[in-house]
Simulated scan of single mutants.
Amino acid sequence: MGGRLAFQTVRINGLVRHAPETGVAQKIAPRILAQIKRLQKDIDPFFQPVPSHLFLVGCSGCFLLDQGLSRQVKCGRKTMKHIILGWEKTVTKSVEYAESIIDTVREPLIVLDQDLRVVSVNRSFYAVFKVKPGETVGQLIYDLGNKQWNIPKLRELLENILPQKTAFDNYEVQHDFTTIGRRTMLLNARQIEQRKGMPRIILLAIEDITVRKEMEQEIKRLAYHDPLTNLPNRMLLTDRLNMAKILSDRNQKKVALMMLDIDKFKEINDTLGHHIGDLLLQVVAEKLTGILRKEDTVARFGGDEFVLVLPDQKDVQTALKVARKIINAFRKAVVLEGHALTITSSIGISIYPDHGEDVDTIMKNADCAMYRAKQAGRNQYHLYNEECRDGTIQPEPHL
């Protein structure tokens, strides 16, 4: 409208809002009008300042109403300049006050416009992600930190999910940042309405849950793994064995189960101490892991007993070949803190479904075969058979 203001009521209450038109017009100096427009434009809608005054501009000049609307002070056009300066100062203080509150939020916050360009961020964002204001405000979010924020899952959230909803919470994203390393984040996004006729802005709150996820992983590891050898424990072994059985039924393949016991391990503990015994268990775990395939499982069953699960076996010969590898791998002496130890083991083998139709039976038959190997002189493997069940010892020869 140039220098003529068909103004209505102007109220600053977080956002600049316009009441219905009053149908009045007043000649306003272009410089003062520009100041008013600039104030309206520059007020950050996110921080929502709340100054204490209401202004009414009409044909009889400018009226200043206090917060309770209980008195009116008529002012001319000249006095209006001082009112605008006071208005600007009040808005600035309100913005600074609101910004200081937002900066106390520990989670990083980003405000985006509809083009996904950064309007504002809080202090925590700068601290956590090691970026500077000059590299942030006005930038496309994907370009932040030399395009470190060009994250496919973030694009999915902002471009596909959020446009269909006003809010979306607990959107988990993992990403490797050049500056701060790998992070796991929960993103909470909101579309926020501005005053009528203005596009929405997007508030993105970022919760860094990296430490929490690491703790959860550690708790899970401790629940399913042996703390000494870091091998699967009995609980995880049962899950793996059940899964191998299901796949065996589906693919018409066999599952080999081996029970391995370190020969005369008690003597090592009694003569050299439990510390050397623990070191020996770790060596055995490492050797067994190195022999098996990635899809196989080796678990510590308890004490000096280990269980090996070999899924997807065509026939029993493959399992026997692995048993021979284990026997041969243990022949070389191991030196632990100056003590040269020769490890031997007794291994019992059972095959699913040849030697049992359920997990408990297969485990029991492998254990039986292992004790038959011990009775036959140790340092050998024994394949379960009917003679084993009947008490007749017929160990398989090993190479």
Results as ranks from 00 to 15, higher is better:
residue 2 G to F: 06
residue 3 G to Y: 07
residue 5 L to S: 03
residue 5 L to G: 01
residue 6 A to D: 03
residue 10 V to L: 15
residue 14 G to P: 01
residue 14 G to E: 04
residue 19 A to F: 15
residue 19 A to G: 09
residue 23 G to N: 11
residue 23 G to D: 03
residue 28 I to S: 02
residue 29 A to F: 10
residue 31 R to Q: 06
residue 32 I to L: 15
residue 33 L to K: 10
residue 33 L to M: 10
residue 38 R to D: 12
residue 40 Q to T: 13
residue 43 I to Q: 06
residue 44 D to Y: 02
residue 44 D to R: 01
residue 48 Q to V: 10
residue 49 P to K: 06
residue 50 V to H: 15
residue 51 P to Q: 06
residue 52 S to F: 10
residue 52 S to C: 05
residue 53 H to V: 15
residue 54 L to D: 11
residue 64 L to G: 00
residue 67 Q to V: 01
residue 68 G to L: 12
residue 68 G to I: 04
residue 70 S to V: 09
residue 75 C to E: 11
residue 75 C to M: 15
residue 79 T to N: 09
residue 81 K to Q: 14
residue 82 H to N: 03
residue 87 W to K: 04
residue 90 T to F: 09
residue 90 T to P: 00
residue 95 V to F: 07
residue 96 E to W: 09
residue 99 E to Q: 14
residue 105 V to P: 00
residue 110 I to C: 06
residue 111 V to M: 13
residue 122 N to Y: 00
residue 124 S to G: 01
residue 127 A to F: 00
residue 128 V to E: 05
residue 134 G to K: 13
residue 138 G to R: 02
residue 138 G to E: 10
residue 141 I to P: 02
residue 145 G to W: 04
residue 146 N to T: 06
residue 148 Q to K: 05
residue 148 Q to A: 13
residue 149 W to P: 00
residue 155 R to Y: 08
residue 156 E to Q: 14
residue 161 I to S: 06
residue 162 L to P: 00
residue 163 P to L: 15
residue 169 D to M: 12
residue 170 N to S: 11
residue 170 N to L: 11
residue 171 Y to V: 04
residue 172 E to T: 10
residue 175 H to S: 10
residue 179 T to G: 01
residue 181 G to I: 06
residue 186 L to N: 05
residue 189 A to S: 01
residue 190 R to Y: 12
residue 194 Q to Y: 02
residue 198 M to S: 11
residue 200 R to S: 09
residue 202 I to F: 13
residue 207 E to F: 04
residue 207 E to K: 14
residue 207 E to C: 07
residue 208 D to E: 08
residue 211 V to F: 11
residue 212 R to M: 14
residue 215 M to F: 14
residue 217 Q to F: 09
residue 219 I to S: 08
residue 223 A to F: 12
residue 223 A to Y: 14
residue 224 Y to L: 15
residue 227 P to D: 13
residue 228 L to M: 09
residue 230 N to P: 00
residue 230 N to I: 05
residue 231 L to P: 00
residue 234 R to F: 04
residue 238 T to C: 07
residue 242 N to G: 12
residue 243 M to F: 11
residue 244 A to R: 00
residue 246 I to C: 05
residue 250 R to A: 09
residue 252 Q to K: 11
residue 253 K to T: 12
residue 259 M to H: 04
residue 259 M to K: 02
residue 263 D to P: 01
residue 263 D to W: 05
residue 268 I to F: 03
residue 269 N to W: 05
residue 272 L to T: 03
residue 273 G to F: 07
residue 275 H to S: 07
residue 278 D to P: 03
residue 278 D to Y: 07
residue 284 V to F: 05
residue 286 E to Y: 08
residue 291 I to H: 05
residue 295 E to H: 13
residue 295 E to V: 14
residue 296 D to P: 02
residue 302 G to F: 12
residue 306 F to Y: 06
residue 314 K to T: 08
residue 316 V to K: 05
residue 320 L to W: 01
residue 320 L to E: 06
residue 322 V to A: 06
residue 323 A to T: 00
residue 324 R to C: 06
residue 329 A to I: 07
residue 329 A to E: 10
residue 335 V to I: 11
residue 337 E to S: 15
residue 340 A to P: 04
residue 343 I to Q: 03
residue 343 I to T: 03
residue 349 I to K: 00
residue 351 I to V: 15
residue 353 P to I: 00
residue 355 H to C: 02
residue 355 H to A: 03
residue 359 V to K: 03
residue 364 K to Q: 10
residue 366 A to N: 01
residue 367 D to T: 09
residue 377 G to E: 13
residue 381 Y to N: 02
residue 382 H to G: 01
residue 384 Y to W: 15
residue 388 C to I: 01
residue 390 D to M: 12
residue 391 G to L: 10
residue 395 P to L: 15
residue 395 P to M: 15
